[in-house]
């Protein structure tokens, strides 16, 4: 894929308060198109809330999420999904009493003929090596396999932007390498824009081209991995004052 400086999505002064807690308090960033970016920060810094606001799971108090020239904040989640933004969850939300194949098919667009949806499901199950488990209930899969299933399910409609919430959490090293290879494949071969929330700094520093750092609901830094590692605000957020 050619290098571009295009913006896939803009978050502008986004705010979300829960009573007195300012979960997101005026956060802004531009998500670069066709790249893998990371969103990091200490626990409770507002990362998952940002994902929930971007995807319509939560309504924002104020601010905008601009995608293809349209403010998509406060749309319902299915509307955001149908516009081409897909996500996974911090704790997997696969359908436990539906088979792997049904999990996949559930996320297909109704505008696509069923035969085509089935073909896409088979292709993606193959992609994440879950084909042998296609008839197994989602709840019977290991946690790592559930992560893979959720990842593959998020790709059913060929989204332009993929938001991954802690894809490495609870996944063994072998499966994680497998997952990261898939993520790189999507970015390099298909030009997808990917934003990853992750606490595993090896994943963030070695696989993301750009990193955004949040603390107390605001963005405190953004830049390349080397820049972030040496940023005093980031060090302070993670380790406190000297």
């Amino acid at each position: 894929m050619a290098e571009t400086n295009e913006i896939a999505l803009q978050v502008k002064d986004l705010k979300k308060h829960f009573g007195g807690i300012k979960a997101v308090d005026g956060c802004s960033f531009d998500l670069p198109k066709g790249k893998i970016s990371g969103l990091i920060g200490p626990n409770g810094s507002g990362k998952t809330t940002i994902f929930n606001l971007m995807t319509g799971v939560l309504g924002a108090d104020s601010g905008e999420v601009v995608y293809r020239g349209e403010n998509i904040v406060n749309l319902r989640p299915y509307q955001v999904f149908n516009k081409g933004i897909s996500r996974t969850f911090q704790i997997t939300r696969i359908y436990r009493e539906m088979t792997v194949f049904e999990n996949m098919l559930s996320a297909s667009s109704m505008r696509v003929p069923e035969s085509e949806a089935r073909e896409q499901a088979e292709k993606l199950m193959e992609f994440v090596t879950l084909t042998p488990l296609r008839g197994e209930y989602g709840g019977n899969l290991s946690y790592g396999q559930q992560k893979l299933l959720e990842f593959a399910r998020a790709l059913m409609t060929d989204p332009e932007i993929i938001l991954l919430d802690e894809p490495a959490a609870g996944v063994n090293r072998t499966l994680l390498q497998n997952l990261l290879a898939h993520i790189h494949h999507l970015q390099e071969e298909e030009g997808k824009t990917i934003l990853i929330i992750e606490h595993d700094m090896n994943v963030i520093m070695n696989h993301c081209e750009k990193i955004f750092v949040m603390d107390y609901g605001v963005k405190i830094a953004e830049g390349l991995p080397d820049e972030i590692q040496n940023n005093e605000y980031v060090i302070e957020a993670y380790f406190g004052h000297k």
Binding site: F81, R93, I94, S109
Partner: peptide, 16 residues
């Protein structure tokens, strides 16, 4: 079925 299993996930995956 997806609604039965997890309504938030279903909505996030395109189900009105």
């Amino acid at each position: 079925n997806a609604i039965r299993e997890d309504e938030i996930a279903a909505e996030s995956l395109g189900v009105n």
